[in-house]
Amino acid sequence: MPYTTGMDPKGPIPVSLFFTCLADAFSPGVGFATVKVLERFGAEVRVPLSQTCCGQPAYNSGNRKEARAMARKFLLSFPGEGYIVTPSGSCAAMVRHGYPVLFRDEPRTLALAHAVGERIYELSQFLVDVLGVTDPKSDFRGKVTYHDSCHLRRGLGVVEAPRKLLRAVPGVEFVEMEEADRCCGFGGVFSIKYPQISCRMTERKIERILATGASYVTSGDLGCLMNIGGMLSRQGYPVKAIHLAEILAGESSGAPAAAGSPGEGRS
């Protein structure tokens, strides 16, 4: 059941952008691409500038005290009503499913966490399930394969929305890879604690990507893309890791740029 804002259905759709700390620091272009797509479909995008990080790295590593501090900060940064949209399945899943665990012993914050959790959507999920977008109106061109981010697919249950959008871009030749839903090996802190296991998983993902012959691999999470793109660039493969938002925005079109450098903003 999609969240309803209680606002005028004919007026502009109020959306707060949660751009994520990864996009902020490493791929600002993903943030702008997300805004561009949202505005294209009638959203009035606000960007709360007090936001930082949802706290997932701390939560996932069991450091709940720190995770709670960041979660509180997040809840304060997105007050009121209106949708919250983010170019990350993982961060959206954290707010929806992680926050209720963090605040299970604090009834008032828990209620707030539930309320905010209901408002948050990952970008493709928002476009398809809430706005009913069937044609993303992107002029992106290229052969693209899609990697399911684990938390987008199994955390939020979003499987078809990104695929539908990709297939609807006329210039995109969409090709499914084998084991698209198999973890790429990132896992946040996992990739630092167990880099060898992580790399083994990434290698298998790379094999599957290369087997498609695609020029681009896309996903709904920058964590996966940093990981996949980082190995693609180290190994010198001519495949570019690019965020779904950038494809939908119709940016970065053309020949693959230097791999492993998702996004713009580096001048």
């Binding site: 902020d24 490493f26 600002p28 980082g230 580096r266």
Partner: peptide, 18 residues
């Protein structure tokens, strides 16, 4: 360091999104 044994890590943008 294990991260970058077989993978690159993206450079931090000079100007972040914010």
């Amino acid at each position: 360091s294990g991260w970058t044994e077989r993978r690159d890590f993206p450079a931090v943008a000079i100007r972040p999104f914010r």
